[in-house]
């Protein structure tokens, strides 16, 4: 059973078809990038997998259930979320919400509560957010908030991670660090990852697959097939060049949304 399977899916937002005839598969434990220009429907795809965006046509199976049926086993990081500076809630509390925030009832102190706190602390260490997790989240930088939100998505040990531009608002070393972290979790814990990205370079060497959204539909393929000068140029409609760096890595240059940070 695949982590994500869409067949002939169509999404309509506000009466307009965003994409149709989308058939994509994400295997368990696979690291897949979702690429495409602004407005192509990448976030819509993520929301469709969560069942927040109903499909207008087609079938979908997410971790063996219809969309929305397995959300307890999915970690979700929405796009460009920053907390209002006046939000005076600690980072550690925000991570904790990801663990049991949806539960009704009064949490009583005891063994279970200590175990939950230990899990939260462990996850915060995993993303390297330990030294600022006790500060109010609204006061943290965008990158610090992002790491805590990744911890929030990870804290339930999900089987599928849906990350909508998690590298946004991170500087270059942090992009590389967070990408490596996500890849490690993907490998070690056998978590499937769907990661929406504009800059493919920090993750290019980790990818098992690529989903391209453009022109109202999606193309799926292996990274070496899709990340080529011809394919990307056709997709974005502007000249894009894929270079082979001396260490064998691919570097994408020229796409307006695929900023070639590494290319200097």
């Amino acid at each position: 059973m695949s982590a994500v399977e869409l067949r002939d899916a169509e999404a309509r937002v506000g009466g307009r078809t965003v994409w149709r005839d989308v058939s994509v598969t994400v295997e368990r434990g696979a690291f897949v990038a979702v690429l495409g220009p602004n407005g192509a429907g990448k976030s819509t795809l993520v929301r469709a997998v969560l069942g927040l965006q109903p499909l207008a046509a087609g079938r979908a199976s997410i971790l063996g259930r219809p969309p929305g049926g397995a959300n307890g086993r999915i970690g979700y990081l929405p796009q460009r979320r920053s907390f209002d500076p006046s939000t005076r809630i600690r980072g550690v509390d925000v991570v904790r919400l990801g663990l049991d925030g949806a539960r009704f009832g009064v949490p009583l102190p005891g063994r279970r509560s200590r175990a939950a706190a230990a899990r939260v602390a462990e996850t915060i260490d995993l993303v390297g957010a330990g030294h600022y997790a006790a500060r109010p989240i609204g006061e943290l930088s965008g990158g610090e908030q992002q790491r805590l939100l990744i911890a929030q998505a990870l804290v339930r040990e999900p089987q599928l991670l849906l990350l909508d531009e998690p590298l946004d608002s991170l500087d270059l070393p942090n992009q590389i660090g967070v990408a490596a972290l996500i890849r490690r979790i993907c490998r070690e814990r056998d978590v499937a990852v769907m990661l929406v990205a504009h800059d493919v370079n920090p993750i290019i060497s980790y990818l098992d697959g690529v989903i391209y959204l453009a022109g109202g539909t999606a193309v799926e393929g292996r990274p070496e097939d899709v990340i080529s000068t011809e394919a990307l140029t056709a997709l974005y409609g502007v000249p894009v060049e894929v270079l082979h760096a001396s260490d064998g890595r691919l570097v994408v240059v020229g796409a307006p949304d695929l900023h070639g940070h590494h290319a200097h």
Partner: peptide, 23 residues
């Protein structure tokens, strides 16, 4: 309020993710 405190906190700080978590 006590019984709904955690979901209410979640929905207040982080409505998008809270919605995805079934709240």
């Amino acid at each position: 309020v006590a019984v709904a405190a955690r979901p209410l906190l979640y929905a207040s700080v982080d409505p998008d993710v809270a919605g995805a978590a079934g709240i």
